[in-house]
Computed example of a mutant assay.
Amino acid sequence: MNTTAAPSGDAASGAAEPAFWYGIPHGYAKLDLDPPRERIEQLVRVLNTLPAEQRAQASQVLQFYAGMVTTLNAQNVHMCAVGYHPDDDGTIVTSTLTISTVPTSGHNAKLVIASLAGTAADDPDTGMRPLELPCGLGYLAEEKKRTVAPGRDPESLEGPLRGDVWQGTVAVTGSGTPDIIVLQLVTPALHLADVYRDILLGVARTLTFTDPTKPVPTPDKPPAGSAEAVMRNDFG
């Protein structure tokens, strides 16, 4: 997995300090949720040079991407990645992995998670189950549902495309953030639900509120900037 970080606070505020870190599985490509204006303008210029038929198709794709980015940012999504993996029959199966934060509106996030995890333990028929993760207590929820698929104008006479998907959700919180962190994986490959559940849980187990790039403090080497480190520097 490739380790990456999520910024603390509102992504639009330009906050640079990460609040938590996580790994992205192989086979997933991250979408740029904050594309530079220059890149969009360049895409529009390229689009305008295409033949009329190709230009119309490319315009729909660009509009879909712009709308999706706007929606994801409005929902506090910090990361969105699309997965492409070969199936046993030689076809390609797709999935979408997102990591977002949900404010608790003044409530204690740990208490909220503990309450939901307790509900999952007491009533397994809810489709939820509690999780003990390295970063803390969380829960897993999964369901199969019918949803609107991209690819057709929802206002057309034929109506929107619909398809069945498997959706897995992990929610967790920790000392690094007052919010609930939500990891969600969605795929139309219902027959691979067990595989994608393992992928989702694998990502959840990488979630950490401690910067993995920093060295682990040891008794012989206290954290930089700590009182003990300062005293050692001053007194040898």
Rank of each mutant, 00 (worst) to 15 (best):
T206I: 08
Q184M: 13
H191C: 01
L185C: 07
P219I: 06
L200T: 08
T213D: 13
K221W: 00
K214I: 02
P178N: 09
D194K: 12
T210I: 13
G202F: 02
L185R: 08
I181N: 00
P178D: 14
T218E: 06
A189V: 11
V203D: 00
Q184L: 05
P217L: 02
V203Y: 01
D179V: 01
T213Y: 05
H191Q: 14
A193N: 11
P217D: 03
V186C: 07
T218C: 07
T218F: 03
P188R: 04
T208V: 04
F209Q: 06
T206H: 03
T218Y: 08
R197C: 07
Q184T: 15
T210H: 10
A193P: 00
Q184V: 06
I181C: 04
A193L: 09
T213P: 00
D179H: 12
Y196Q: 12
D198C: 03
P212D: 08
A193F: 07
D198R: 14
D211T: 07
R205K: 14
P217A: 08
D179W: 03
H191W: 13
T210S: 12
T213Q: 09
T213R: 09
T210G: 00
L200K: 05
V216M: 03
I181V: 15
L183Q: 03
T208D: 00
I180K: 02
Q184R: 15
A204F: 01
T213H: 10
V216Q: 12
R197K: 15
V203Q: 04
P212T: 07
F209E: 07
D220P: 00
P188G: 07
V195E: 14
A189P: 11
A189L: 10
P215R: 05
V203C: 01
I199R: 13
P212R: 06
T187W: 10
D198E: 15
T210Y: 01
D194A: 15
L192V: 01
I181A: 06
V186H: 02
P219A: 08
D179G: 04
I199W: 05
L207S: 05
H191L: 12
G202Q: 08
D194L: 11
T187N: 05
P212E: 11
T206D: 04
P215N: 07
D198T: 14
A189N: 14
L207Y: 01
F209M: 09
P212L: 11
V216E: 13
T208S: 15
L200A: 04
L201Q: 11
A193G: 06
A204W: 00
V203K: 02
L190D: 11
L207I: 14
P212Y: 04
T206S: 13
D194G: 08
D211N: 14
D194R: 12
Y196K: 03
Q184W: 01
A204E: 00
I181E: 03
A204C: 05
L192N: 06
Y196P: 03
L190G: 11
L200F: 10
V195P: 00
R197G: 05
P188V: 09
T218R: 04
V203A: 01
T208H: 06
D198Q: 15
P212S: 07
V186P: 03
T210A: 09
L183K: 03
P215S: 02
T218V: 05
R205E: 10
P219D: 11
V195L: 13
T213C: 02
T187Q: 08
G202T: 04
L190P: 10
D211H: 05
D179K: 11
